[in-house]
Write a protein that binds this DNA or RNA. Structure first.
Length: 194
DNA sequence: TGCAAACCATAAC
DNA sequence: GTTATGGTTTGCA
């Protein structure tokens, strides 16, 4: 049985679907209905689910963690993600995306180099990212540092990136399964916005 | 700049 | 199987 919880925190609605204490999918939106809808859209077909109006203590912990991530902070709670229904390739791409540090961004092409496949394939996976904002797909932009797209609305993407601004000015490399992933200061993206 | 062609995993037929 | 579809990229005029 999948349990679905939602809660409004600081004018944003967060929603999560959990099964056996593990996160099946998560999302956020401007209102409750939209947030729940996004989650319903991604839970596996044929699995029974129930929507709860009051989050349990455990659910509140997860929802609070989502809010922290949304605010550009590191999540305190341990978040266990259910990835068994995803393809190996999708898992690889999501994992690489999770390696992007706060305050930095990378491009679809860079992820493709680190996880294999091509840039468009990466974009497809971002577009259907089941774990927003746990997997920071908003930190992935086009190679010319323009925004690219965002499933939950470009407005959110910009807001999230602004909150994550750390004042970095140099590129950096992080390790993803032994291969290097180049990342760039989020300022490089914000600078190009009108 | 702007456009066309290559790109590559999924989902939908 | 095969085709259509992107949150892309790159090269060339």
């Amino acid at each position: 049985m999948i349990e679905i919880y939602s809660q409004e925190i600081e004018q944003t609605w967060f929603c999560v679907a959990v099964n056996n204490h593990c996160i099946v999918t998560s999302s956020f939106a401007e209102n409750q209905q939209a947030a729940i809808y996004k989650v319903l859209d991604k839970i596996p077909f044929k699995v029974p689910f129930q929507i709860f109006h009051e989050p349990t203590i455990q659910a509140k912990t997860i929802l609070a963690a989502l809010k922290d991530l949304h605010n550009g902070k590191t999540a305190q709670a341990d978040l266990h993600l259910v990835t068994s229904n995803l393809t190996d390739y999708t898992k690889k791409v999501l994992k690489a995306t999770q390696c992007i540090p706060i305050g930095y961004v990378t491009s679809y092409g860079e992820i493709a180099k680190a996880a294999g496949g091509g840039a468009r394939a990466v974009g497809n996976i971002m577009a259907s990212n089941p774990f927003a904002p746990i997997v920071p797909c908003h930190r992935v932009v086009k190679s010319d540092f323009s925004l690219g797209g965002y499933g939950l609305g470009l407005k959110f993407k910009v807001e999230l990136l602004k909150k994550e601004k750390q004042g970095f000015s140099c590129t950096k490399q992080v390790n993803v399964d032994g291969v290097k992933l180049g990342v760039f200061p989020v300022e490089w993206v914000l600078r190009n916005l009108v």
